[in-house]
């Protein structure tokens, strides 16, 4: 009897109808526990004043109303301009370098590829330690020495808005340039060589070939990289943490996620922090949709 039960249970799990669900079960469980539950919970929390895990009070949209404060607007502005500048630098620059690396006549390609990729191996903290001390205020630091060559006076880089943003974008560029180059290189290698040859025979110069063939062919990769850059830019926290920890003087370098972290885990204002999270989610989704529509992503799907 017992044996029979066991056998039938085995054959149940092993039937081609059940097996697929066993394979995907980990993701279903993970999705429910780590995404669906937290998402619903965050929405609920955002409508509450939370004093303790079991001591809450429903306050409707008050947390969202409280978002209309200068700290949040500053964080939104910092995050948006960080995302904007990282995209402005980390799309065109790696495309150009990838085209150079893809040129058969270029010498030392493998060395350049490895060298440019190396920064991606470091953690934000390690990279941050370097850039924090390079952008230090002493006249002898790396960046102050560098600007000294151009006759500029040393400055307190990390305590002023503009220079602080520059430091953040430089840190991000250092860590991600090589990764984006790899993305664009893989896109370039997928372009059939014959197109270039045909264009060259038709008398198209390098400039024309780049704008008429290379860029349009890279479009899917560009969409991908812009999408992950928006995602990474708007959820940025670690870079800011590496420079200023959680105490940012005058909110310099404070991003939306740093604000969320500060409110939720330093001030234990969890309800308000949840409202920040939900707002961030909407912003990321909205910007991604606009970006994808702008790039004609949905049109392509329709065809």
């Amino acid at each position: 009897m017992n044996k029979k039960k066991k056998a039938s249970l085995l054959s149940f799990f092993n039937s081609p109808k059940t097996a697929p669900y066993v394979f995907v079960a980990p993701f279903i469980l993970f999705f429910l526990v780590c995404y669906v539950y937290p998402f619903i919970k965050t929405i609920i929390m955002s409508t509450q004043q939370i004093f303790g895990f079991n001591d809450v009070e429903y306050i409707g949209f008050n947390n969202y109303r409280r978002l209309l404060n200068p700290h949040f607007f500053n964080a939104l502005k910092t995050t948006s301009s960080y995302t904007f500048w990282t995209i402005m630098v980390l799309i065109p620059l790696p495309i150009i370098l990838a085209v150079f690396l893809n040129n058969p006549a270029t010498k030392g390609k493998n060395f350049f590829k490895s060298a440019l990729f190396m920064p991606a191996l470091t953690s934000v903290i390690v990279a941050g330690i370097f850039f924090r001390y390079s952008f230090g205020e002493q006249p002898t630091t790396l960046v102050n020495t560098l600007v000294g060559f151009f006759g500029m006076k040393p400055r307190v880089w990390l305590q002023e808005r503009g220079p602080a943003m520059l430091a953040l974008v430089v840190l991000c560029t250092w860590r991600w340039l090589g990764v984006n180059i790899i993305y664009f290189l893989s896109g370039l290698q997928a372009i059939p060589q014959e197109i270039y040859e045909a264009a060259a025979i038709d008398g198209a110069n390098a400039w024309n070939r780049f704008f008429r063939i290379t860029l349009p062919s890279l479009k899917p990769v560009i969409i991908y990289v812009v999408t992950i850059s928006i995602h990474g830019g708007y959820s940025m926290f670690a870079e800011s943490f590496a420079f200023w920890q959680t105490h940012t003087p005058g909110d310099i370098g404070m991003t939306i996620v740093s604000y969320l972290y500060q409110m939720g885990f330093n001030d234990f204002n969890m309800g308000f922090a949840a409202a920040i999270g939900i707002t961030l989610l909407f912003i990321v989704m909205l910007i991604n949709l606009i970006q994808l529509a702008f790039m004609g992503f949905f049109k392509k799907e329709g065809n």
């Binding site: 995404y35 539950y37 998402f39 995602h231 999270g277 961030l280």
Partner: peptide, 15 residues
Amino acid sequence: MMVPIEIMMLPLYEL
């Protein structure tokens, strides 16, 4: 893949 994990930090912490 599109949802930043940072948004879920608070309930995940509670969990």
